[in-house]
């Protein structure tokens, strides 16, 4: 049995699951930030996560690609632990090389873009494919130009991040994540740092991605996006999933009073 199949049998992972969390806990020192998160994101679907600031949304995303280690629970991406291998009932930390390989399959888009500021847009896109995947420079460039075109920025290939607007930077950042051919893309409030008139251009790209079948976990305050693009909506509050459901239904008719209160603020 492969480790993937073994994990799936052992933890009751549904078929076709890309991200699977069961009872995920995370503490910083004595403070427990995540108190048992359950989530299943099927391949090709979009999960939107909303919730007040400090509720643990970013921490959960960072746990998914092992930028943070979980303190407890099971967190699988494509049926495998990201930072561990399960052998004989014990979780063995994987070596750096394997961890990097697995991270390369999990794209992440940050609130503050985090483009490499000493590189042009094109260089940002080809860096990891060449250095991590060992792709040839010519192939990486071809692919990068295609991706820049996809996010509508062919003309900006040679611009440095500082010369781009926030919306353009975020589109380059999305293209950079896509250049690694990730299995899943994590978005941490991708439009929160943008001027209102620039939000739309980023959401268009994300919607296009969702329609092309990309598996996405999106932390956002854009309720409209969650309603129209999301396949499921998760409301996180104080480290727990307070409510979850089909986005339209949940937004129209929230069950929990806390969800109702939160939605009344952001709608």
């Amino acid at each position: 049995m492969t480790s993937k199949a073994e994990n799936q049998a052992r933890f009751g992972v549904p078929q076709n699951s890309m991200v699977f969390a069961r009872g995920v806990r995370k503490s910083f020192g004595a403070v427990e930030v995540l108190k048992g998160i359950d989530l299943n994101v099927p391949t090709g679907s979009v999960a939107c996560v909303i919730g007040p600031s400090g509720s643990g949304k970013s921490t959960f995303l960072r746990c998914i690609n092992h930028l943070e280690e979980v303190s407890g629970g099971v967190l699988l991406v494509d049926g495998e632990f990201v930072g561990y291998d399960l052998r004989h009932g014990k979780l063995h930390e994987v070596n750096n090389k394997l961890l990097c390989q697995r991270r390369a399959d999990i794209g992440m888009v940050f609130q503050s873009f985090n483009l490499f500021s000493h590189m042009t847009a094109l260089e940002n896109l080809i860096e990891a494919p060449i250095m991590v995947k060992g792709m040839s420079k010519a192939e990486a460039k071809d692919k990068a130009y295609a991706l820049l075109e996809r996010v509508g920025l062919s003309a900006k290939a040679d611009s440095y991040p500082r010369q781009l607007s926030g919306g353009q930077q975020q589109r380059v950042a999305i293209a950079r994540a896509l250049a690694m051919n990730p299995k899943v893309l994590l978005f941490d409030e991708p439009t929160s740092a943008l001027d209102p008139e620039l939000v739309g251009e980023v959401l268009v790209v994300m919607r296009d991605l969702a329609e092309s079948g990309m598996t996405m976990v999106v932390v956002t305050h854009e309720i409209g996006f969650a309603r129209e693009v999301g396949d499921q909506l998760i409301f996180m509050d104080r480290g727990v999933v307070e409510e979850r459901g089909e986005p339209r239904e949940m937004i129209a008719n929230p069950q929990s009073p806390r969800t109702r209160e939160f939605l009344s603020h952001v709608l």
Binding site: L67, A104, N114
Partner: peptide
């Protein structure tokens, strides 16, 4: 900025590569 290291890490770059290239 620490975001640069995180972004590089999320692309699968290892410590040494991040130090040298980013």
């Amino acid at each position: 900025a620490s975001g640069q290291t995180e972004a590089a890490g999320s692309l699968g770059m290892n410590h040494r590569l991040i130090l040298r290239r980013i």
